[in-house]
Nucleic acid binder design. Structure first.
Lengths: 141, 141
DNA sequence: GTTCCTGCAAAAGCTTTGCAGAAGA
DNA sequence: TCTTCTGCAAAGCTTTTGCAGGAAC
């Protein structure tokens, strides 16, 4: 996605497209690695001498509220951010700590507990061993 | 679940059943409201004059690693804890901020991206309006 | 020109660490 | 008795707040 396209998307959501906001959003779109606040700041900081962490916090907040990005909790208690706001699954490997996005078709049959509830968004997380680590563990036995 | 049963469950997982650990785990089991560290500490503190937040952190860590409890990120970036480690869904209402647990039958058809992956655990989150808030919003229009 | 955003510094809040004394096995 | 845990204090982070100057419109 080009800078212009990103700026346009921000405008649609009534977000003033400043240099910093465009850069943060672009970083999230280009790096589907679910970076933390610090990772984003560290990556963009060299390019902008005055870039501040406060702005990263502000920007993530704004993008979150607009629904353009997602916050995810993959392991322990570290909050990380995801530039892909479309419905997709997250697979977290407990061995290599890598995150894998995946598409899915979900047939949810929720119990009557949720009758009358309006679901606007769903998140599916899966935890276990990725292909590579599953093979490694098999060898080890 | 009785104190003895809780102590037994901790022992099975090689966790020394101290007063504090039993209390924290009991609180999580009795309050399916997904409390934060602070909520747990504030609730148990009056009963135990010397009870410390450090112990809450330590205990939650131990219980998490044993798989007896879960950490969840429901809104913003506040980590909260769930005493129910069985597979179940979380519904978070964006209007009243209440959390509702629900049972579900899930037919996941993951794409080939996950072939060879070993899934050990799944989490399903849903966001939207609960029954009460859905009705209120309808009225307001 | 007006509004809103950035980024510095400082404050506030959260989480971890080190360690002496206490509790559990 | 030996090991492990608790809880205080302090350190180390993370996140928020206030506000003057700057960017966007």
């Amino acid at each position: 996605m080009s800078i212009e396209q990103i700026a346009g998307r921000l405008k649609i959501h009534d977000i003033r497209p400043t240099q910093q906001r465009i850069k943060v959003y672009e970083y999230l779109l280009k790096h589907p690695t679910h970076p933390s606040v610090d990772t984003i700041y560290t990556a963009l900081s060299p390019e902008y001498p005055t870039f501040s962490k406060t702005t990263v916090y502000n920007t993530l907040d704004v993008l979150l509220k607009a629904g353009l990005i997602r916050a995810v909790l993959l392991s322990g208690n570290e909050v990380r951010y995801d530039g892909n706001a479309n419905e997709h699954g997250h697979f977290f490997c407990r061995r290599c700590s890598e995150v894998y996005d995946f598409e899915y078709v979900l047939g949810v049959t929720a119990s009557e507990e949720l009758e009358g509830f309006q679901t606007e968004r769903r998140d599916l997380y899966q935890f276990g061993l990725c292909r590579t680590c599953a093979k490694e563990e098999e060898k080890a036995i």
